[in-house]
Design a binder for these strands. Structure first.
Lengths: 191, 191
DNA sequence: TGTACATCAGTGAACGCGCGTTCACTGATGTAC
DNA sequence: TGTACATCAGTGAACGCGCGTTCACTGATGTAC
């Protein structure tokens, strides 16, 4: 019990440090200090920094999937409405948690990608995208699957937005909205 | 003269270290050691690590633009051929220099983004994309500019490919090619 | 042509720093008898 | 009910490590006169 609590408290501390100070500040000692525990304590719960990172990323994917699901389900319940909602959630999460988002999609080799919690959370996020794209067919036999197009588009937008190179809004204005971009794609419903 | 030479040799060493061992191994001391110079020498040429990183990233953008220009100019000289070539260059560079590519598009705060060489090289890469998209018009008034669509798509593909989440090929096979993906987009030529 | 001097890239020793890791320990908890 | 013992999460001191930075120095180069 105490073990589970400290473990999850260290992960939460890691998420906060990532949010406030970025990846460079994310160390075992910093997490222990934030929780208020000696710096040797995390060794009882994680196999070094890669283990802690895996735990943090798993938690990150869970929050990511929650955000997408929430925005999808509170949007207009049509295929395009749900897809726009999901993508807005994707963009929103990457905007609100830039350092975490970057870490989640960076296999810098320092992360234990076999961690079962990590795989479960990551799969759940992917399946949300997959489900929300199922109403759509590829436009032609040669064209790519809808989910590849959509995923690449929204992921590229999120990454470029994060690095300050483009601006994407949710409300209407001079810059394109997610909805404009998705409507630019050739999406064809099942007949 | 000696100053310029050591400066550029340190940048080249940084690029090699990035390629071989990743971002975590990229330090002032490591660059100095690779060049064969004392670890205090770089201080005469760079204002700490951020200055060296700016130099490395500027060089990276130059190589990036070279790669895209080369692939664009050796492709079939039609609008779609040139655009496919450029995007193949984009993907090829990100595949061949994953750590550098990640660093180039990550404003982790540790980089001096006001560096003039950095701005010049970055602008040249962007202008290549812009030029190659000029034959195309948006499909409708609401839809996004072609270059935003293309950039987001190819950047998303590059990033997701790098993190091992999707596979994109240049030759034909079971997975979509860049050409398939670009042909999936609604691109309309000027009349 | 020669002398004196200024400049400055690179040296090598030393510094403090935060990191992950180790290790003997303490003290609470739970269990066997 | 009580005693003895095993377990184990967390402690705190100590370790070696590589990092960026500082600083007095050396020695080559270029310039003024």
């Amino acid at each position: 019990m105490t073990q589970d609590t400290l473990r999850s408290r260290l992960i939460m501390a890691g998420l906060e440090i990532l949010q406030e100070k970025g990846l460079a500040a994310l160390t075992l000692r910093a997490c222990a200090a934030r929780v208020g525990v000696s710096h040797a304590a995390p060794a009882h719960h994680f196999s070094g920094l890669p283990g802690l990172l895996a735990g943090i990323i798993a938690k990150g994917f869970t929050q990511f999937a929650d955000t997408m699901e929430e925005d999808r389900n509170s949007a207009e319940q049509t295929p395009i409405g749900r897809l726009c909602g999901l993508c807005n959630g994707y963009m929103r999460f990457s905007r609100e948690h830039p350092a975490l988002f970057t870490l989640m999609f960076n296999t810098s080799g320092e992360v234990d990608t076999d961690d079962p919690a990590f795989c479960r959370a990551s799969d759940r996020a992917y399946n949300l995208l997959h489900e929300t794209c199922t109403p759509y067919l590829p436009v032609s036999p040669q064209s790519a699957a809808t989910e590849v197009l959509v995923w690449a588009l929204v992921h590229g937008l999120a990454t470029l937005q994060h690095s300050g190179r483009i601006v994407v809004t949710e409300s209407e204005g001079e810059t394109p909205t997610i909805e404009d971009l998705l409507r630019s794609l050739p999406l064809k419903l099942h007949t």
